[in-house]
Design a protein around this nucleic acid. Structure first.
Length: 270
DNA sequence: CTGGTCACCTGGAAGC
DNA sequence: TGCTTCCAGGTGACCA
């Protein structure tokens, strides 16, 4: 999916256009996402004013005061604002109508989600168990070192575990480990305190750089304005198997971890 | 609790 | 050209 930067780019892009606006209708063309759409979604949001959009991990939280509309983009989801009369594509499953414009959810693979959470949305099972926000001050090298103590799994897989840290997906896990100079296969609990500090800085800088570039243009992703991001031009390792490392020239290698591809430089990462 | 595997779904690219 | 196989941003459920 869109990882944290792409989700945040979407949030920031939408916010000024929809905050304070009233939902005038909805259109559901296919309610079968990862979870079925709530049958009463229309009754919950139509006529309500959107107070703001928050983000927790890769979840977008549309605040309608009495409750929250939770949206997850899965692997292939995107949200865009289009003129309300724009003909839908075959994977445009849901529209939230705001007067003359539609906030349109497109998701070819349908791994995404759209749910209604009543007050106290943070207590929802999907949100309650989430780990630390990587860009918050909560995440420090010390805290990460502690969190990794009982984890013998490979650091790449622990980095992607949303119950530890949220928002770091397959692309940014590889990129962060490259920046930190750490082998993705290293057992998490064998990483020293000082290397954890370096890793935390690498995760933060990777996500921030991606955010500044407007995210990555993924196969199925476009930002809320329909424009692509450019961060993929800055990838050090992701998708670069066989190509020379941008720092040392050694050929980038790949391996499989938990049925996902990992990329790393055998010389820069130990 | 932890780690490993599977499933969910569609489409594009590569291989034969 | 057409069919088959593999691969893709996520993550909850299930098992040992």
């Amino acid at each position: 999916m869109p990882e944290l930067p792409e989700v945040e780019v979407t949030r920031i892009g939408l916010l000024p256009h929809v905050r304070g606006r009233r939902v005038t209708g909805i259109a559901v063309r296919n309610p079968f996402l990862r979870y079925p759409l709530p049958p009463d979604l229309g009754a919950r949001v139509v006529g309500r004013t959107l107070a703001g959009i928050a983000r927790r991990g890769k979840y977008l939280l549309f605040d309608f005061e009495p409750g929250v509309l939770l949206v997850h983009l899965g692997m292939s989801g995107s949200l865009r604002l289009v003129p309300a009369d724009t003909p839908p594509d075959r994977h445009d499953h849901v529209d939230l109508l705001f007067e003359k414009r539609a906030l349109r959810l497109r998701d070819p693979r349908r791994f995404g989600a759209m749910l209604w959470l009543d007050k106290d949305s943070g207590a929802h099972p999907l949100l309650r168990t989430l780990g630390m926000e990587p860009l918050s001050d909560t995440l420090t090298g010390e805290v990460l070192h502690l969190a990794l103590r009982r984890r013998s799994a490979a650091i790449k897989q622990v980095l992607m575990d949303s119950h530890v840290i949220v928002g770091v997906g397959n692309i940014y896990a590889s990129e962060s480990l490259f920046r930190a100079g750490i082998r993705p296969s290293t057992a998490a609990h064998r990483i020293s305190r000082s290397r954890c500090a370096r890793l935390v800085e690498a995760v933060k800088s990777t996500l921030q750089d991606a955010l500044a570039a407007g995210g990555s243009s993924l196969r199925d992703f476009v930002g809320s304005d329909g424009k692509p991001g450019y961060f993929q031009q800055q990838y050090f390792v992701y998708g670069r198997v066989g190509l020379p490392c941008r720092l040392c020239g050694a050929p980038i290698r790949s391996l499989r971890q938990g049925q996902r591809s990992t990329f790393y430089c055998p010389h820069c990462q130990r």
